[in-house]
Design a protein around this nucleic acid. Structure first.
Length: 467
RNA sequence: GGAGUGGUGUCCGAGCGGUUUAAGGAGGCGGUCUUGAAAACCGUUGUACCGAAAGGUACCGGGGGUUCGAAUCCCCCCUGCUCCGCCA
């Protein structure tokens, strides 16, 4: 016996590092299920038939991908499979012949041919597998097509403002930023976060904790009332799922933390886990649209983001978020995308936070999105008052369902890919920035938005005396 | 984490080297019969890929191996259940 609180065995290291080597220890099962069988035909057919449009789309998004390579590898793949199938057909034929009575020379000849076929098949299989992998890799780099009306541009400043709700908050005093307010109210501690975990980590304290819980419950109540099924998801997911949703878990530019010794990554959003929930399934058409809302922690490396907006809660390595996810019939995704945006608008309207809506430009869409709306809240403490992204909703059409192999059985009896959409309900970090900065008073006190009071149980957070 | 025991088509469930091109049920679909229905009987019944088509190939949890030939034998892994250990 020991009164020690030490663990009986060493805790597994959960290092925030990238994976040690390419594909280290990665099981192939899911990859086989999702990629090598997943509807490559439609995809390929589209790329072949619309090569120019595909190439132009890649340029508009300022991405690197090679559709010609996809076409070439696709042809190679077909040839390899044809050769392989023919050998296998003959092998089966030879094996069938062996079932009957045979004289010794005929028998020996068949065995010899069978042996030779076995070698041929083995060689052809490895060639086909190589081509298949190269093709899957080349295809995975091709981004989704963009909505024809999405503004063409490179960076977020090319996004198009389409709507404004409320007016930027005015103060008859010099407003503080949320970092100063967080310290004054003792609801936010970045120094301790840095000491214990690292830069861009933080502790919520006191009313800050309750505010986060209130925001989540507020979000869930509203979404459940709209028929969304609530989830609390894992905070980690397998690499295959990440890739299926369209994230690149590896590479220096990756925004994803990968565990050093397992095929797992910390999720950057519950979009990953909610989208993965139905991976590999054929959904009942009558159940569509499936509307999910999930709470999770979100982890982002934000490598190289140590610039001007790096201070405070705006860009952090971990935050809590409620996220919507929808799988629907292809013909309904446009309508549902509007619905998700309206929900996001409703949430921020209910919180009395001024915001605008932007139509995200092609360069800022990310590979999976066909179209994306961002909500930008007014943040009085940001550079003396600026719009800052608080939520985002994307229509990813069949980009994710194709990779995750999520389908529905249509009336014609064929299995077809569903469309997938996602949208932020509330990201706690940025919502808290907006609330602290917009609802501050001259002495640094912060009022709670009326809609939130039933959830927080308090109306005002007052400055704390220094201890 | 340890031990035992399973993972077969939409479902249940046989098969344990070539008579299985996966038996037999159930369900679904189509048909016969019937005033209608039930019953009975007959037929049909998945997914993916290659191919202009005819047709072919693959799939019995996943991967690899043995063999002329594997659902069937061997190895590894995943996963369900039962028990033990540990733990919130």
């Amino acid at each position: 016996m020991s009164g020690s609180i030490q663990p009986s065995r060493p805790a597994r290291q959960l290092e925030f590092t990238r994976r040690p080597g390419p594909d280290a220890g990665r099981p192939i099962a899911l990859a086989a299920l999702f990629f090598y069988h997943a509807g490559t035909m439609l995809d390929l057919k589209f790329i072949k038939d619309n090569l120019d449009a595909v190439r132009r789309n890649i340029e508009n998004r300022f991405m690197k991908a090679d559709p010609e390579l996809v076409v070439r590898l696709s042809d190679e793949r077909s040839a390899a499979i044809q050769a392989l199938d023919e050998k296998r057909r003959r092998r089966n034929e030879v094996a069938a012949l062996m079932k009957g009575k045979l004289d010794e020379p005929a028998r020996a000849a068949l065995i010899a041919e069978g042996k030779s076929l076995k070698d041929d098949i083995s060689a052809l299989e490895s060639r086909a597998e190589t081509v298949e992998k190269e093709l899957a890799d080349a295809m995975s780099r091709i981004p989704n097509m963009a909505h024809p009306e999405a503004p063409v541009g490179k960076e977020d400043k090319d996004n198009l403002e389409v709507k404004r709700v409320g007016t930027p908050t005015k103060f008859d005093f010099e407003p503080r930023d949320h970092v100063a307010l967080g310290a004054l109210l003792d609801v936010l501690d970045f120094d301790a976060g840095t000491k214990v975990t690292g830069t861009k980590f933080y502790f919520l304290k006191n009313e800050g904790v309750i505010l986060e819980m209130a925001l989540m419950r507020f979000a869930m109540d509203r979404l459940m009332a709209k028929g969304f099924m609530p989830f609390s998801t894992p905070d980690l997911a397998k690499t295959e799922i990440l890739e299926g949703i369209g994230f690149n878990p590896r590479g220096a530019e990756s925004n994803i933390y990968a565990l050093a010794e397992e095929d797992l990554c910390l999720i950057g959003t519950a979009e990953i886990t909610l989208g993965g929930y139905y991976a590999g399934q054929v959904l009942d058409k009558a159940d569509l649209p499936l509307k999910l809302v999930g709470v999770s922690h979100c982890f982002r490396r934000e490598a190289g983001a140590a610039g001007q907006f790096s201070k405070g809660l705006y860009r952090v390595h971990q935050f809590t978020k409620a996220e919507m996810f929808v799988y629907c019939l292809p013909e309904d995704s446009g309508k549902l995308h509007e619905e998700l945006r309206l929900i996001e608008e409703e949430i921020f309207t209910a919180l009395d936070i001024p915001f605008r809506v932007v139509d995200t430009c092609t360069g800022d869409l990310g590979a999976p999105a066909y179209r994306k709306w961002d909500l930008e809240a007014w943040m009085p403490g940001r550079n003396g008052g600026e719009w800052g992204e608080v939520t985002s909703t994307s229509n990813c059409t069949d980009f994710q369902s194709r990779r995750l192999n999520v389908r529905y059985k249509d009336d014609d009896g064929k299995n077809k890919f569903v469309h997938g959409l996602n949208g932020t309900v509330l990201a706690c970090s940025r919502a808290i920035v907006a609330i602290l900065e917009n609802f501050q008073e001259a002495d640094g006190s912060v009022r709670m938005p009326k809609a939130l009071v039933p959830y927080t149980g308090f109306e005002l957070i007052r400055p704390k005396a220094k201890r």
